[in-house]
């Protein structure tokens, strides 16, 4: 294959791998925005907590292997990886429920600014709470403190080269898991009673309540679902890029928000497409021009979207009425 094509394909592979992460986080933003019309500022930090809960769970489940000991069988490793991922998703779902219950629900019906400020408070609390020194007497070193930790290798890494394009099993697994989760989410949203109720609440919470839909419970469920997806994204991201620290959710969170806006905030397919598009755009621009401005790309995209198509690719223009 010509070198330029190989380079392009390599960028596409990398862009897709990052884009699926953005897409999974963006889904949480967009679903919560759909039902509450609130940008859950703390979502990026839920993602961070997901990575750390995976880290602690793996520390318990995958004991340190002595040098020279045989590697665990593939089946065993897969089971462990799945358990860690599901465990982290469960932890984050609970965290999402707690945040909703204690920080957002008491403020429902008050000024929008109030919830926004609380959301920022929750975000700061998670970011800086995790940076405190570990509490003595706990079985694990929690909070982790400000120094970066290294996420354990859940599965043995295998690298392949397809005609010059390097690809690892992590990329393939990541993509497969992300696609499976998105299909699952699509089924939940469009084929279950919960999903129908969620769409009804998103359409009009007051009418939904009149129709007998338990709005509070649906909102709580939406938080749990979005947070679990963020945790899955965190594990998928932390396995190939293992450095994790308490502030590392900030930037992916912001970028995923941009992805959600790009796709049209409130739209589930929009978040997926927006995430993939943003990941690809970032990788391509960084790959062909200067990589030091990689982080600025997302914000350029955001400003362009806000200027030219503020409702995003999949959003419908809605006029605010009194």
């Amino acid at each position: 294959m010509p070198a330029r094509l190989v380079e392009l394909l390599q960028h596409l592979v990398n862009g897709l791998s990052v884009g699926t992460i953005y897409a999974l986080i963006a889904l949480g933003y967009t679903m919560v925005y759909g039902v509450l019309k609130l940008i859950n500022f703390a979502h990026g930090d839920v993602y961070m907590v997901g990575a750390f809960s995976g880290y602690y769970l793996a520390g318990r489940l995958v004991p340190e292997r002595a040098a020279g000991a045989p590697p665990p069988g593939l089946a065993g490793a897969t089971l462990q990886a799945a358990l860690v991922t599901l465990g982290a998703m469960a932890v984050c779902a609970l965290l999402g429920l707690a945040i909703e219950r204690f920080a957002y629900r008491p403020l429902r019906g008050r000024a929008r600014l109030t919830s926004l400020i609380t959301a920022i408070g929750v975000s700061l609390l998670l970011e800086y709470g995790f940076q405190l020194q570990p509490i003595r007497g706990l079985p694990v070193a929690f909070p982790p403190g400000p120094t970066p930790r290294f996420f354990p290798e859940l599965l043995p890494r295998a690298d392949w080269s397809l005609g010059g394009v390097s690809l690892s099993n992590y990329d393939v697994i990541g993509l497969a898991v992300a696609v499976a989760l998105m299909i699952g989410l699509q089924l939940v949203v469009y084929r279950t009673r919960f999903g129908t109720a969620m769409r009804a609440v998103s359409f009009d919470p007051k009418v939904a309540a009149l129709m007998g839909i338990p709005v509070d419970r649906i909102i709580a469920g939406t938080f749990a679902l979005g947070s679990a997806l963020a945790a899955a994204a965190a594990i998928l991201n932390a396995v190939p890029r293992p450095q994790i620290h308490p502030l590392f959710g900030l930037l992916p969170g912001l970028k995923a928000f941009v992805a959600a806006v790009l796709g049209g905030i409130g739209s589930v397919p929009g978040a997926m497409v927006g995430g993939l598009a943003l990941g690809l755009a970032e990788e391509l621009v960084a790959g062909y021009t200067a990589s030091s401005f990689k982080d600025a790309i997302a914000f350029t995209v955001l400003i362009l979207v806000l200027l030219f198509r503020p409702d995003g690719l999949f959003g419908r223009a809605r006029v605010e009425k009194v």
């Binding site: 408070g121 609390l125 405190l132």
Partner: peptide
Amino acid sequence: QAYRMVAYALLLIVVMLARP
């Protein structure tokens, strides 16, 4: 100093809940 940001965060949340 180490607790400063945590204190800010709690302050924001508590002020919003108790005296917005």
